[in-house]
Computed example of a mutant assay.
Amino acid sequence: MSPAWFGCADRARQRDDPMIGSAPHAHGWLLIEHPGPWGIDAPAGCGLDEDVLLLLGRAARAAHWRILLVRRPGRRPVPPQRRWIAVGAAATREGHWRGDGELGAAAEAVRTLSRAGEPAATAGPADPAAEPIILVCTHGTHDTCCAVRGRPVAEALAARWPASVWECSHLGGDRFAANAIVLPDAAYYGNLDPGSAVRTVEDHLDGRLDLDRLRGLARFPPVAQAAIAEAHRRLGPLPALAITAGHPEQLEPHRWRVVVAAPAGSWRVIVVAERREPAVLTCRAAAATPATAYLVTAFDPA
């Protein structure tokens, strides 16, 4: 890539686009190992049997999960048997389950993991002491910035945590590349480079969120992500799972109240959504569109 490349991530940095609340809301992730190439719609174009893909898609939509393709950095050979991992966004590390096995069982794992904590037949409880899964978006067919910025970040993280790091297909928020998510905490981070990525993940694993690079905890909707981030800013440093939020209560068309719970008590947080000026938000965008910024206007004891 030419040193003169100036993509959507460069423009977003110039505009100082706010990241908090930009993590796509999901309850879990189905990760399917596939070395590539990845089309724009990666799962649909990866050569899966059409009936299997339809089954997986239905299960994921019903459970509010996302399907991602993953591969190890460095394009290492993939075992002949296709592998998959189902990762639920955990309320606690001990409540998190993973499964791997033949792809035909993945849909049942998604359905089971989306219910009240019952493990699938092919799954077992994660070891709370084990390293989490770290995904870095490198989906260049979807957005050039994800490949240009994501691949060096994936390599740097893999050098530090070789068993935990995967490149992945589209995570969302291309303009914040390089993007990464730490599972099962469901913590999205953006605007990463190789050096900051290693520090950010080290801090995360040590129980401190990097609020300057945090996009949100994806197991919560965007409004709650903003409220939780503000609580971490005021009450932290705290681990990702230390602060939770109830369902946002809409007070006005663009104003919500969210009750967050932390070890020190509960707070009522008022969050306002503001539409920003239209901008070109991805490298592939044909026109400018407005993004949403989430602002905390009140933070009071409940």
Rank of each mutant, 00 (worst) to 15 (best):
A298S: 15
A279L: 04
V78R: 05
C145R: 01
A59T: 03
D300M: 13
S2F: 05
G246W: 09
H204I: 02
R82P: 01
P152V: 12
A60C: 12
A231C: 14
G21S: 10
A273T: 11
A116S: 14
A26T: 10
L281M: 11
T292M: 13
A129V: 06
A4W: 14
G95N: 11
G117A: 12
Y188R: 06
V296G: 05
A159E: 08
D17K: 04
T282S: 09
G207N: 13
D212Q: 13
D300G: 07
L171A: 05
L30I: 07
W256Q: 07
P237Y: 06
L217K: 03
D51K: 15
W166E: 01
R234H: 09
E155W: 06
P184S: 05
A42D: 01
S169Q: 07
R160S: 13
L251F: 06
G45I: 09
E202I: 11
T144F: 01
H232W: 02
E118S: 11
S114N: 10
L157G: 00
P37V: 08
P125Y: 06
P290N: 11
V258H: 01
A4N: 12
G216N: 03
L30M: 10
E230F: 01
W267F: 04
L205K: 07
G39L: 15
A90G: 03
A159G: 12
A89S: 10
A242T: 11
L103T: 04
A126E: 03
W267V: 01
P239G: 03
P125A: 06
G172Q: 10
A287E: 15
H139W: 03
P248W: 02
D51C: 10
S22Q: 11
V182T: 03
A90R: 04
